[in-house]
Structure formats: structure tokens, C-alpha cells
């Protein structure tokens, strides 16, 4: 049983497809979850079709969507870190790791969820995962929290093997779908098609909703 979970992702909606079910489960089990979201996804390309957001209004739209998603999941501690989308890899990595260290010192999490550096495709994901791992490495091995990582690069299974943590989140499926729907500007197009496929019980998609998978980071 965890005592405190810390989720660190760079973009609002990074939690939606692969992690929101796990978050909902932890919260239903009475475990506090803190979500540090580094940016507001200012550089997102989805504006709605026809566009209902624009480059300048998008951050505010996504901020409200993120707050909505947290409400759906029951996250009470959302920390928006104020960095800018697509610039994380250009920040000073020491500084970023320090920000994570501060949160770890304050919260003393037993579990941290982030992206697996090297296997998470978007440069912001990679830099975010890097910073978390750097921060956790500063802690003596015996005291380190567990770090469960999301990976989805085309070579992740080939290089990392199969994920070692697979969670059945079907009991909180509704909260997960509500989370995905909360990120409307980014997911509306996708959801329209998804609902039909879910009604048809399409197996691959059902599995993506019902199960979440993680690779426990191996420090050496």
C-alpha cells in the first residue's frame, strides 16, 4: 500500500490515457496524489475543428481542462509549474531536478509516476523523466521511492522488455473516460470515434481503457 503518490508530467492530458485509472484507484484507496504538471501545453496543435481555441487562448482553455480532469479523478493537490510547452529540454536540468527534489522533500512520496527517459517520444516527456530520475538518484538507494514509468516509443518493449506493472483499472473506467473527456480541446475528435468503438466492445481499445502498464525504473 502506498502512502503518497507524486505524478510528474509536462503536459495537461499526459495522465489521461495511460495513468488516470491508476490515479483514481490510489485516491479511492485513500492515498493522496499530487500532480505536478510542468506546462499548460501552450504549443498544442489541436484547436478544435473548426477551431474554438487559438495559440493565445489555448493555455487558459487547457488549464481549465486540467482542473476539470483533476476534479473527475479527485486530485486535490494540482501544481501547475508554469514552464512553457516544448521548452523543457532547454531549461537548466539541475534547476528542474531541484524543483522535483523540493516536492519530494515536502511530500515524501512512496511512489512517483513519470515518463521513462529515452522511451517517451516527446522531448518534453524525455526531459521531464530525466529530471525526476536525477532527483531520485540524489536520495540514498535504501530510501528511494519506487518510480513507475510510462513508455511508448516504438522500441520500448524491445529495449525494456514487457512492462512489469499492469493494473486493472476497470472499476474506475468511468472516471478515466471522464478524465479523457475533460481534455476536450485535445481529445474531442478522438472521443467521438472512441465512444462508438467502445460500444462495439472493440477489444484493443477496451484493453487500453481497462489496463494501465508501467515499467519500474531500475537504478544501477
Amino acid at each position: 500500500m502506498e502512502k503518497q503518490v507524486l505524478v510528474v508530467f509536462p503536459h495537461p492530458d499526459d495522465e489521461a490515457f495511460g495513468v488516470s485509472g491508476s490515479i483514481a484507484l490510489h485516491i479511492e484507496n485513500g492515498i493522496p496524489v499530487t500532480y505536478m504538471c510542468l506546462t499548460l501545453g501552450e504549443m498544442g496543435r489541436n484547436m478544435g475543428n473548426p477551431p474554438f481555441a487559438n495559440r493565445e487562448s489555448l493555455p487558459e482553455v487547457r488549464k481549465m481542462e486540467l482542473q476539470e480532469a483533476c476534479k473527475a479523478l479527485g486530485i486535490e493537490d494540482l501544481r501547475m509549474m508554469g514552464l512553457r510547452d516544448k521548452t523543457i529540454e532547454f531549461e537548466d536540468p539541475e534547476w528542474l531536478a531541484n524543483e522535483i527534489t523540493k516536492a519530494i522533500d515536502e511530500l515524501d512520496p512512496s511512489l512517483i509516476i513519470t515518463f521513462y527517459p529515452g522511451y517517451s517520444v516527446h522531448p518534453d516527456h524525455e526531459a521531464c523523466g530525466e529530471a525526476v530520475i536525477q532527483a531520485v538518484k540524489r536520495i540514498p538507494a535504501s530510501k528511494r521511492p519506487k518510480v513507475e514509468c510510462v513508455a511508448f516509443s516504438n522500441d520500448c518493449v524491445e529495449k525494456l522488455g514487457e512492462p512489469d506493472v499492469i493494473l486493472d483499472v476497470s472499476s474506475v473506467q468511468d472516471k478515466k473516460i471522464a478524465t479523457i473527456e475533460a481534455h476536450k480541446s485535445q481529445t474531442a475528435g478522438l472521443m467521438a470515434g472512441m465512444k462508438k468503438r467502445l460500444q462495439a466492445n472493440e477489444e484493443e481499445l477496451m484493453n487500453r481503457i481497462k489496463y494501465e502498464q508501467f515499467w519500474t525504473y531500475k537504478f544501477d
Binding site: N46, M47, P51, R55, G189
Partner: peptide, 9 residues
């Protein structure tokens, strides 16, 4: 802005 056929910027 220029949006592609999927509406993406």
C-alpha cells in the same frame, strides 16, 4: 494560423 485537414495547427 494555418490548420491542416485534421484541424491541427
Amino acid at each position: 494560423a494555418g490548420h491542416d485537414t485534421d484541424g491541427k495547427l
